[in-house]
């Protein structure tokens, strides 16, 4: 999954207009970053990279870009 594809998918998960996210946004500043959006991100990583995200790993993410790094991480599943 490319960075652009990931950001596009995250736009959809966060119900933002296409092309909104650039990666630098702080999750804490995104009103729609909630428990449902977290499930959407976990599903996205699972579907596209086969990466099984542990929710405690998400807590350490500060920006949207951090989520991409996590989604791409090999062996994120435990």
């Amino acid at each position: 999954m490319t960075r652009a594809e990931f950001l596009s998918e995250m736009d959809a998960i966060l119900e933002l207009p296409a092309g909104t996210l650039t990666g630098g946004e702080k999750l804490a500043d995104l009103e729609q970053w909630n428990s449902m959006a977290m499930l959407g991100f976990i599903a996205l990583a699972d579907t596209n990279n086969g990466t099984r995200i542990q929710p405690r790993q998400i807590v350490n993410c500060v920006t949207v870009g951090d989520l991409l790094t996590l989604a791409r991480a090999e062996g994120a599943a435990s």
């Binding site: 909630n34 428990s35 977290m38 499930l39 976990i42 599903a43 699972d46 099984r52 995200i53 542990q54 929710p55 998400i58 599943a77």
Partner: peptide, 23 residues
Amino acid sequence: NGNVRSRDNLFMNGAEIFTFTLK
């Protein structure tokens, strides 16, 4: 997340349950 409960209520960590299910 703005949800209210006491320890007498059911608690569900949706993200953890989802991850368990995917595995």
